[in-house]
Amino acid sequence: MQNNDSGSPLLDGLVQAAAGDRQFVTALARGLEVLRCFSTQTRLLSNGELAARTGLAKSTVSRLTHTLVQLGYLKADEASGRYRVTPAVLALGHAALANVTVREIARPLMQDLAEYAQALVSLATRERLNMIYLENCRPRSLVTLKVSTGMQLPLATTSIGRAFLCALPVAERDFLLEQIRRRDPQGWPLLAEGVAQAEEQYRAHGYCTSLGDWNRETHAVAVPLFCPDYDLLALSVSGPAYALTRERIDKDLGPRLVYLARSIEAAAGQS
C-alpha cells in the first residue's frame, strides 16, 4: 500500500479519474485511497493524518474510516485512537501475490544468489512512484537489511527503481519522471542526474546501481525482469556498502544478476 508521507494530495487524481466516467464510483476510490495510506513504514494513522495524505475533507475521511472499521478492514488502536489495517487487508494482498506466479520460479534462484553474495536479493514492481517488494531472499548465515514483502522504496534513488524506469517505454518513463519532478522540485536536479547515470549503465552493462543514493550505507545493483504474468518487474542485490563495493558489483554481482534475470525469464516463459 502507498505511503504518501512525501506525496501531494490525491484528491485531484480522483477527480481526474472520475471526469466523464459514469461507471466510476468515487466513494469506492476514496475508501481505497485511505487504505493505500497505510504501509509497513506507516502503521497507525489518525483521521487528520489520513485527510492530509489524501487531500480529502476530515469529515469525509471520518465516514470512510467508520465504514472500513465496520467492514473489518480497519481497527482503532486502543492506546492512540489511530487506525491500523487488519488481516482482512492482508488477505487481499496475498491474493494479489498469488497471481505473480514468477515468484515461485524466482525464489530458489534468488536464494542461491543471496547465499553466494551474502546479501539481500529482492523482486519488486512499481506502485505509483514507489517500488513495492514482492519477494525477498536473505542469506541464512547473515542478518542483512531489515525489509519485508510489501515494503516500498522510491523509484528514482534506488537501483531497483532505476532498473524499472530504464526498461519502460520512453513516454511512460518521461511521464513518471515528470511526476517525481513535481513532487520534489528542489531535489530534482540530483535525482535526474542519478537516473541519467543509471540509463547509461543499463545501456552499457544491462544493470544499474545505487551507491549510497537511497541510504548512505547501502549499495545495490538491479536489473529489469520481463515476465508473462506480470509485464515488468525488477531484481536487485543490496547490502552494506563495505561488502558490495563498486568493483565487486561490476566484476561479479552485476553480471550474475543479469544472468539470473534471463534465467528466470526463460523458465517463466516455458512454464
Rank of each mutant, 00 (worst) to 15 (best):
S6Y: 10
D12E: 14
L14M: 11
L14C: 06
V15C: 08
Q16V: 12
Q16L: 10
A18V: 03
A19V: 13
G20D: 02
V25Q: 09
T26P: 05
A27H: 12
A29I: 01
A29G: 02
R30T: 12
R30N: 07
V34Q: 01
L35F: 03
C37V: 14
T40L: 11
Q41S: 13
T42M: 11
S46H: 09
N47D: 13
G48P: 02
E49H: 13
E49P: 08
E49M: 14
L50T: 01
L50Y: 00
A52Y: 06
R53S: 05
R53M: 06
T54L: 04
T54I: 06
G55S: 05
L56P: 07
A57M: 15
S59D: 14
T60P: 08
V61Q: 00
V61P: 00
S62A: 14
R63W: 13
R63N: 06
R63Q: 12
L64W: 02
L64A: 11
T65D: 04
T65W: 00
T65H: 03
L68W: 04
L68Q: 01
Q70S: 15
Q70M: 14
Q70H: 12
G72V: 04
K75S: 12
K75Y: 15
A76N: 08
G81M: 07
G81I: 04
T86I: 03
T86G: 00
P87L: 06
P87W: 05
A88E: 09
A88R: 12
L92P: 05
H94M: 11
A96L: 14
A98R: 13
N99F: 15
N99W: 15
N99E: 14
V102M: 10
R103N: 13
A106V: 01
R107Y: 14
P108C: 08
L109V: 10
L109A: 07
M110I: 03
Q111K: 08
D112G: 15
E115N: 11
Y116G: 02
A117K: 00
S122E: 12
R128S: 07
N130L: 07
L134P: 00
E135Y: 00
P139C: 04
P139E: 02
R140V: 14
R140S: 13
L142A: 03
K146S: 15
V147Y: 04
S148A: 14
M151C: 09
Q152E: 14
L153E: 09
P154T: 00
P154R: 01
L155D: 03
A156D: 08
T158Q: 07
S159A: 11
S159G: 06
I160E: 02
G161P: 00
G161I: 02
R162A: 06
A163H: 00
A167T: 04
A171R: 07
D174Q: 08
F175G: 07
L176F: 03
L177I: 07
Q179K: 06
R183P: 00
R183T: 01
P185C: 08
G187Y: 00
P189V: 03
Q197V: 15
Q201K: 10
R203F: 04
C208N: 01
C208G: 06
W214T: 03
W214F: 12
R216S: 14
E217I: 12
V221Y: 01
V223E: 09
Y230D: 12
Y230H: 09
D231S: 09
A234L: 03
A234P: 00
S236I: 07
S238M: 07
P240V: 08
A243P: 15
A243F: 12
T245M: 08
I249M: 10
Y259E: 14
A268K: 04
